[in-house]
Nucleic acid binder design. Sequence first.
DNA 1: CAGCGCTCGTTCACATGTTCACAAAGTCGC
DNA 2: GCGACTTTGTGAACATGTGAACGAGCGCTG
Lengths: 248, 248
Amino acid sequence: MSPARRRVIPEATIARLPVYHRCLLQMQAEERSKASSEQLAEMAGVNAAKVRKDLSYFGSYGTRGVGYGVDHLLVEIRRELGLTHDWPCVIVGAGNLGSALAKFAGFSDRGFSVVAVVDIDPARVGEQVGELVIQHEERLAELVLEHAVVIGIITTPPAAAQEAADTLTQAGVRSILNFAPTVLDLPADVLVRDVDVAVELQILAFHEERRAAAKASATAAAKPATAKPAATKPATGKQVTAKRATAS
Amino acid sequence: MSPARRRVIPEATIARLPVYHRCLLQMQAEERSKASSEQLAEMAGVNAAKVRKDLSYFGSYGTRGVGYGVDHLLVEIRRELGLTHDWPCVIVGAGNLGSALAKFAGFSDRGFSVVAVVDIDPARVGEQVGELVIQHEERLAELVLEHAVVIGIITTPPAAAQEAADTLTQAGVRSILNFAPTVLDLPADVLVRDVDVAVELQILAFHEERRAAAKASATAAAKPATAKPAATKPATGKQVTAKRATAS
DNA sequence: CAGCGCTCGTTCACATGTTCACAAAGTCGC
DNA sequence: GCGACTTTGTGAACATGTGAACGAGCGCTG
């Protein structure tokens, strides 16, 4: 209840907010007006207590005995996430990924609009990508200022990423989504989120590798009669419990 | 040193291994034979103690007073991550993102080879994407078995993702990289990693929103003479590099 | 309008992850 | 060889995040 408490919101909670938001949108589309923490939890693939705690950080408006009002909660979350206004973004690097993101319309409905795409290759300048025309990377700083860009999306090869990030930062951008497989070195007040597909694949590979090793050693150890078939714990982290196989 | 200890490796450590791997590759390219935890930490953007602890989970392959042998460490990490052999992947959904990933060669050098791309749209079947030809999604299960696919990459629209995941799972795939903005409901032994660009953008937006709010309230509170100009703490002082966050 | 059942919000114990600090263990110069 | 110096490996404090349990408040019903 203390207003001071609401100031500090855990990172983990923040990362879940967009998921709740998505679930609530779906509920709204299904014309459901109320949602219990239990229902929301199942849809979001998390624990119900976590949902309640997450929402309580914002002084949330649930009704005991009833649940949360879908519309109301949506408004609250949308405001917290700043989805009420527009977020101009710029994409640096018009390769496969950059182009795909530029064409993809899935963000615009949440207020993220790509206002420019730049590339360093002069041969690509002028090319049409979605509704935009590729511009030269020289103009990056200029474009940032012109469109009041807030979020920079880096999809260059790793070698070019740092320079792109520096240019963005100097032009005033403080939020960067980095797809390049490099660690960017930037001032402390710049928030970087890394998305690296290769890293994700390697994490999956690690677990596969472990699984194979566990199975192999289990088979090897299976010569005594008392083998432990289910003893190899899956070591899931955030994994959903497969409690319901709602195939129907 | 106890062998039992090495069994349990924290998720967070696993997620950093690929980053270390990447840094070591770069060091190797620069002909450096030794790396201290300090150097590795700086390059990877983390704490030196964390590097040492992470690496120690796999055994002590450093030399006190000297550091880690780059080549040796690379071999160890590569083995842990299972990068010594090939990981056949399949991409479900040949939209913008799916196509971009299929064309992108950045994974193949780490053992991840895309062996097939499928799409549900008959009009797209037969189309060339990179070195592959798009096949119909009907053949998905068949292709998984044929190529012994281990990792499934879902790049379909959200509505189609669950079905794709089910098909993959029934065909024996236990590792899924999901780009679709949906929570997949799968058996507990299937490991899913979600990559959602919209979520990442919303997280950035949240922090931007907070920043703006902090600045606004600081300005509002500046009407008394004793305004605190540097009181809006973006991050605590000694932090030099940008605040870093990797996707889940 | 009182009791009852439902569900939120909060508290507490536990698990996971990070950072510090330092002894152990090695190298290098002499 | 020996002592000084460097850097690892790890135990222990600290911070963050999770999950279970439960009291408090709300609506429904008789």
